[in-house]
Every structure is written in C-alpha cells, then in structure tokens.
C-alpha cells in the first residue's frame, strides 16, 4: 500500500480538486493511523479472499427500453437557474484557449 505522508494527502486532496489548511493536513495525518488500524481489521477475517466483492445489496436493477414518448424536461431557464455566470443562454466559464 502507498505510504501515508503529508505529500500523499495533499496529492489526494488536489486530485479531488480542493485544498486544506496546513494544520488540517496535520490533523488528518495524525488520525490516519487509527483509520488504518480500523481498516486492517478487515484483513483479519478468515477466508476473505474466497468471497466475491459485493457492490449492491441485491441484483434488482431494472433495465428495459422505454416507450418513445415525449416527457416533460427542464426548460433552459430552469437548467441555468442555479449557475452563477450565464451568457447567451449558456453557462460561462473562463476561456480554455487564449
């Protein structure tokens, strides 16, 4: 497993597109050993590796083709209602190409 240190925690945070204060990284680093111990208890279960990973409680996902009927959708106005910067009916972001 990857070794835990402050650099790794920062890498995780930045991959997740946020930052924390220096002291918050320190707190997390200090607490990580408890989390690791808690997680290590999983490894103590006998015969674990013979099990199949469980992703959902049961296989009940529904899949079917809907009838091709027109349904009520969001209007453009509604879809843009919560965006902070809107221009010409579209969400405006900083330029990607100069």
């Amino acid at each position: 497993m990857k070794e835990i240190n402050e650099t790794l925690l920062k890498e995780c945070a930045h991959n997740l597109m946020f930052d924390m204060k220096e002291e918050e990284y320190q707190t997390l680093l200090n607490e990580f050993h408890i989390v690791q111990e808690q997680l290590s208890m999983i490894g103590e279960i006998d015969g674990l590796d013979q099990e199949e990973p469980m992703t959902f409680p049961f296989d009940c996902a529904i899949s079917y083709l809907r009838e091709d009927e027109e349904k009520e959708n969001l209007t453009r106005e509604e879809a843009l209602k919560n965006a902070k910067d809107v221009f010409a009916g579209q969400i405006k972001l900083p330029k990607v190409v100069g």
């Binding site: 945070a13 997680l39 674990l48």
Partner: peptide, 23 residues
C-alpha cells in the same frame, strides 16, 4: 473524501476497496 480517494489508489484497491466489498 481523502480516505475514499486513498482506498481507490491503484496500489490500494485490492487491499482496501475490494477487501471491504468482500467483507
């Protein structure tokens, strides 16, 4: 979120995420 991200690192997935799903 950081703990979640840590458990999903390629090097950790087998040890953490998949093991949790098996447990």
């Amino acid at each position: 979120f950081i703990i979640g991200s840590y458990s999903l690192f390629k090097e950790n997935q087998e040890e953490l995420f998949l093991r949790a799903q098996k447990a």
